[in-house]
Every structure is written in structure tokens, then in C-alpha cells.
Amino acid sequence: MVSWVRLTVLLLLAAALYAPILAASSEGQEFYPCSQCHAALTVTGQSRSNEFHGIDLAEGAHGGLYCSNCHQAPQVDVLVGGVNISIPGLHPRDSLMDLNKVCSTCHADIYRDYQLHAHGNQTYTCSGGTAELVEGYKGVGYWFHICPEYRDLSVEPAKACVECHNPHDPTMPALSILPEPSDRPSPPDESSIALGGVVAVLAGLGIILWVAPIGKRGGEP
């Protein structure tokens, strides 16, 4: 499940950023380094949208920002603080983690939560372990940790900011709702027991009343 979330977010991000480029190339892996275009292109500090990348900062939770708030104008291919642009799914996690510095310039408080694993970014690992996806209960997928011993686990950050939040529209996309909860299964058909019960009670009462009508039971003294 997590992987689907992650994967979709990644795909959405990649698509949003690289749609035109990816469309041009037949294979997703082949993409142009940012600098290839941005060496020649410049953007003013006043810019808020980019038609080519499909970015419009008039909308979304980052509405009101300028490109230059995060990108170093005029070339924009490097972010403020000298961090290189990295794309989830295309770059390794280490370089994505670098991008956290950009986010933390404004969101210092949340970044502190993040650093303390209080922002939904934890996972655990074990040495020599893997994770595998199993589709199980009610068709919901789940990643099992497979470790040799399941001792000495350690908690580590699972994701960089941009792996969940599109920096140009940081609100998380809505997620699907999983099926309704269940309760114990309803009791099976018990009509045979009911029938047996009726027979037993009728037989029992029948014997009592037949042999000994109430009031005339001549029990011996």
C-alpha cells in the first residue's frame, strides 16, 4: 500500500515536472539534465508560473510564492542554498534528502517534527532485511518486513519531503478509502437446532403433562 502511495506520488510529481520532456522521449529514463536548457534560459525573480513545466503558483498551498523563493534566479536550475534539483524516482534518496534544506527554510517547525520522526516518516530496518508486498485481507496490499532475526531493529526516516509533497503544490493528493470495517461473521443457519429445540421442549412438556396433569400428580407421601 505504501509503495502505491509513494509510487503514485512520484509518478504524479514526475509527470507534472517532466511531462513535456518525457513525452518527447520514448523512454522515461532518458531525460535531459536541467542545466541543458537552463544554461541558456533565464527567469526573472518576479515569475510565478511556467507554462512549459505546467506550474502555476497562483494556486495551491504554495500560492503567492515566486519561483525565486526557492529557485536561484535567474538560472533556476539550482535551488536556494545551492541545493541541486532532484526528482523523486529519478534521483537516489540521499539527494532527495538534500532538498529538505529548502523546505526547512520556511517550515522550520514542521521540519523539527520531521527530524524527530513526528511527521509520518518513520520505518524500521534490520540488517540483511527486505520488505515484500503481499496482497492480503480485503485485497489490501501490505509490505512485510523480512528480517533474518527480527532483533535490533532501528527506526529511520522513510521519505524525503518531496516524496510526499509536490513542492509546487504541496498539499497531499487525496487518498482512496479502504473498505468498511467488519465485525464477527453473522451466525449460520441454525434452523435444525431450532427445530430440535422445539421437538425437545414439546416432547419434554408432553411427557410431563401427559403422564402427570398439573395438580393431580399423585406423588406418594
Binding site: 505504501v2 532483533r151 527506526v155
Partner: peptide, 28 residues
């Protein structure tokens, strides 16, 4: 053994926080 509960790990919005109350550095 040092891990975190499955619900904390799987939460897509990071609503859950787990930790040791006695550890000043813990998320909780």
C-alpha cells in the same frame, strides 16, 4: 526490538507518532 508499530509506519499522512515517554529525544 527497536521498531515501530505497523500503523505508524503505514500511515500515509503521518498522523501517528510513537515513542518512549522517558526519552527526551523521542517523537512522542
Amino acid at each position: 526490538d527497536g521498531g515501530i508499530p505497523a500503523c505508524v509506519e503505514v500511515c500515509p499522512v503521518g498522523a501517528r507518532v510513537f515513542g518512549d515517554l522517558n526519552d527526551p529525544e523521542s517523537p512522542i
